[in-house]
């Protein structure tokens, strides 16, 4: 594979990529969703991906833990290339946390059980250990008192924070966020964003698909703008928001910032 060079340990103190995406192409049937995507994500880097709906941003991050299968190019996560090998995929998935737009909590399990299920069954932790870890992370997202309730009894914002805690319980190296605040009432967006900001400050590597430009401005090391399945432009937030280079980016920013 052409990309194997990228995963070698760097000789200098240059940032080490934890995710390397090379010439990624994906189709849904005949529809070409992702076109020649190249992207390196360094450890502790925070990347915000934005773009109009249908631009392929969600598909891109879903390819990283293989919820979507790509047809061309390569994705290397933490030194392992994503192939059809089920065991390898599960190993990568257990190291990559994901937070979904619709939370996708398990409604038949309590909040704490949601958090401890994968640590017990995938990480083979004891129940005591997993409970301890679960409570620790629920405390971190500030809902330890809801631990024994069912997800249906929680507000949307609380549910999304549980989803974050659930992903963190696997002690992932990377966290993927797929529009984490899009399904929330305005009053609840803030509490979720605050949790994400705290997580970013703790040094987690994060890829976030979102339209929360305030969050991007505050947290992102890099903002990526996608359209028509391509990366149109990427830059640090200051340059991205203040001097966007392409016309497409300018149009998009004017539409989402001036409403």
């Amino acid at each position: 594979m052409t990309s194997s060079a990228a995963s070698k340990t760097p000789t200098k103190t240059e940032p080490s990529p934890i995710i390397t995406i090379n010439k990624l192409n994906k189709w849904y049937g005949k529809f070409h969703v992702l076109k020649d995507i190249d992207l390196n994500v360094n450890k502790t880097e925070k990347i915000v991906i934005c773009g109009p709906s249908g631009s392929g941003k969600s598909t891109l991050i879903r390819c990283i833990n293989r919820l979507e299968v790509h047809q061309e190019g390569s994705i290397i996560v933490d030194g392992t290339e994503l192939t059809d090998d089920v065991k390898q995929i599960n190993e990568i998935r257990s190291d990559v946390g994901m937070v979904f737009q619709h939370f996708n909590l398990f409604p038949h399990l309590t909040v704490l059980e949601n958090c401890t299920l994968a640590p017990i069954w995938v990480r083979k932790k004891s129940k005591v250990e997993a409970d301890e870890l679960g409570m620790e992370l629920l405390t971190k997202v500030r809902i330890p008192d809801q631990a024994h309730k069912y997800p249906g009894q929680l507000s949307g914002g609380q549910q999304q924070r549980v989803a974050i805690a659930r992903a963190l319980c696997m002690q992932p190296r990377v966290m993927l966020f797929d529009e984490p605040t899009s399904a929330l009432d305005p009053e609840m967006i803030k509490e979720v964003l605050e949790t994400m900001i705290e997580l970013a400050e703790s040094g987690m590597t994060m890829l976030v698909v979102t339209h929360e430009m305030g969050f991007a401005n505050k947290v992102a090391d890099r903002v990526i703008f996608m359209d028509e399945g391509q990366i149109v432009e990427q830059n640090d937030p200051e340059n991205f928001f203040n001097n966007p280079k392409s016309e497409r980016t300018k149009l998009f920013l004017s539409q989402i910032l001036n409403h």
Partner: peptide, 14 residues
């Protein structure tokens, strides 16, 4: 909902 399957897949469950 297929999100249930996806969420458990994302946690590395077979």
């Amino acid at each position: 909902d297929k999100g249930q399957n996806e969420a458990s897949m994302a946690l590395g469950m077979g």
